[in-house]
Amino acid sequence: MARRRNELIGDELDVVQKSLKSEVMSFDGAMEIFLKDAKRKGLREFTLRYYVRECNDFRKYLAREEHSLIINEVVRRHIDEFIEDMQERRCLRTVTINTKLRAIRTLFNFLYERKYIDENPMHKYPLLKERKANIETLSLKQLRQLLNAPNMRTFTGQRDYTFMLLILETGIRLNEAAGILVDDVKLAEGQIFIRNTKNHFHRYVPIQEKMKEQLRRYLKLRGTCETDHLFVTIDETAMTRSQLQKVTAKYGKIANIKGVRCSTHTLRHTFAKLSVMNGAGVFELQKILGHSSMEMVRVYVNLFSSEVSEKHRQFSPLNNL
Rank of each mutant, 00 (worst) to 15 (best):
M1H: 12
R4L: 14
R5N: 13
N6P: 06
I9V: 13
I9M: 12
I9F: 10
D11E: 15
E12G: 09
K18C: 12
L20S: 11
M25C: 10
S26C: 06
D28C: 07
F34N: 00
F34C: 03
A38N: 09
A38T: 05
Y50A: 11
R53N: 12
E54H: 08
C55L: 02
F58H: 07
R59T: 02
K60P: 08
K60C: 10
Y61N: 01
R64F: 14
E65I: 02
E65N: 10
H67Y: 15
S68V: 08
E73M: 12
V74Q: 07
E81L: 14
I83S: 03
I83W: 00
M86P: 00
R90I: 00
T94H: 07
I97S: 09
T99W: 02
K100I: 11
R102D: 08
I104H: 05
F108H: 02
N109A: 01
L111F: 03
L111H: 06
I117H: 05
D118L: 15
P121H: 08
Y125K: 05
P126S: 11
L127P: 02
E130H: 08
R131K: 13
K132I: 10
N134T: 08
I135R: 11
K141F: 04
Q142N: 10
Q142E: 14
L146H: 07
A149Y: 09
F155G: 01
Q158W: 07
R159D: 06
R159K: 08
F163S: 09
F163H: 07
L166K: 06
L166P: 00
T170M: 04
I172D: 03
R173G: 09
A178F: 05
G179P: 04
L181V: 00
V182R: 13
D183H: 08
K186S: 03
L187P: 06
E189V: 02
G190S: 05
G190W: 06
I192C: 01
F193K: 05
R195G: 13
H200C: 04
F201Y: 09
V205S: 07
I207S: 00
Q208V: 12
Q208F: 15
Q208W: 13
M211V: 15
K212S: 11
K212Q: 12
K212C: 13
Q214I: 12
Q214E: 12
L215H: 05
R216Y: 11
R217M: 05
Y218D: 09
L219T: 03
R222S: 09
C225H: 06
E226Y: 12
D228R: 14
H229Q: 15
E236R: 15
A238R: 06
T240M: 00
T240E: 01
S242Q: 13
S242L: 06
S242M: 12
Q243G: 07
Q243L: 05
L244Y: 07
Q245C: 04
I254H: 07
I254D: 08
I254A: 14
A255N: 01
N256R: 13
K258I: 01
C262D: 02
T264C: 14
H265L: 02
T266F: 00
L267G: 07
L267A: 09
R268G: 02
A272T: 03
K273L: 06
L274Y: 10
A280V: 14
Q286S: 06
K287L: 06
G290D: 00
H291A: 10
E295P: 01
M296I: 10
R298G: 01
L303F: 04
F304K: 01
F304I: 04
S316C: 04
S316N: 11
